[in-house]
Design a protein around this nucleic acid. Structure first.
Length: 261
DNA sequence: CTGGGGAGGGGGCCC
DNA sequence: CGGGCCCCCTCCCCA
């Protein structure tokens, strides 16, 4: 994907980066973000072109472009591989309306759409030297839509699917579609009922590692005092037998061309 | 609390 | 050796 217009966006971001401004990124992201109200939950139908007819009848094909109240997102979407529209800033009206939307969506991930996790990925905030050891993970790939920065083209590409609404990975057992293959595989456990992760203490099984982790945290916090001799749930993935079940959910159908880009 | 989906990060492999 | 891609992890939000 040879997007990343050498355009001003990037330069701008570089500039921002030079200033060591995650804040700049964030604020910019914020501005754009307001336009990017994440697609409604349960929204599976992308923009019309990508995913096929599997979409449920009621899965209103409303991407983030089609906003409930009839307003529509600014046309800053990419439609074709690597074809990016030049990002544009919104005029106030747009921003306002979209802010409203954001409100409704309870801004899903903290403030910025492409939020940087708590962990200071960019350390350049304080020191200010862009190439310092602090910024050991360079994020040279900027999303034209939300100005999110990513460390690789792949991550950017993946991220962009959010904006395009494309979900290349379809579950063959239901109508769900996913942007990431891992999501699909994870989802398939819902169908298979597979729960390979078990809490040692309560014997509760989980289908996901993070579910176990979360449970474990709660479990530990809840009864730290109780358990003196026995560590609750070890952070180990496979508790007992690895999924005995043959991959009923195995990638039978390799998702339709992983974004033919 | 739990279950499920969404999203970004990071390590590793391959070309 | 670097970049692209993949897999997996972890966290967040929401029902």
């Amino acid at each position: 994907m040879s997007h990343l217009p050498s355009s001003s966006v990037r330069d701008h971001m570089k500039w921002a980066g030079l200033l060591g401004c995650e804040a700049v990124l964030s604020s910019m992201a914020l501005m754009q973000a307001s336009t990017m109200a994440a697609p409604p939950k349960k929204m599976m139908a992308p923009l019309g072109h990508a995913p096929p007819q599997r979409d449920g009848p009621d899965s209103a094909p409303q991407s983030h472009m089609i906003l409930p109240s009839g307003m529509s997102c600014p046309p800053l979407l990419i439609r074709k591989e690597g074809e990016f529209q030049a990002p544009r800033l919104l005029d106030e009206k747009d921003m306002r309306t979209n802010e409203d939307m954001q409100q409704k969506k309870k801004n899903r991930k903290s403030v910025t759409p492409c939020k940087v996790r708590e962990q200071p990925v960019f350390k350049m905030g304080t020191g200010g030297d862009e190439n310092g050891p602090a910024s050991k993970v360079q994020k040279n790939f900027i999303c034209d839509h939300c100005y999110g920065a990513f460390r690789s083209g792949y991550h950017l590409k993946r991220h962009i699917l959010i904006h395009t609404g494309e979900k290349p990975f379809a579950c063959d057992m239901c109508d769900m579609r996913f942007i990431q293959r891992y999501h699909l595989e994870r989802h398939k456990r819902v169908h298979s009922g597979e729960k390979p992760y078990q809490c040692e203490r309560c014997q509760q099984n989980f289908s996901r590692t993070d579910r176990l982790l979360r449970h474990r945290r709660l479990c530990q916090g809840r009864s730290v005092a109780k358990v003196e001799n026995q560590p609750c749930c070890e952070p180990r993935p496979y508790q007992q037998e690895p999924p005995p079940a043959p991959p009923t959910w195995s990638p039978l159908h390799p998702p339709p061309g992983r974004l033919a880009v």
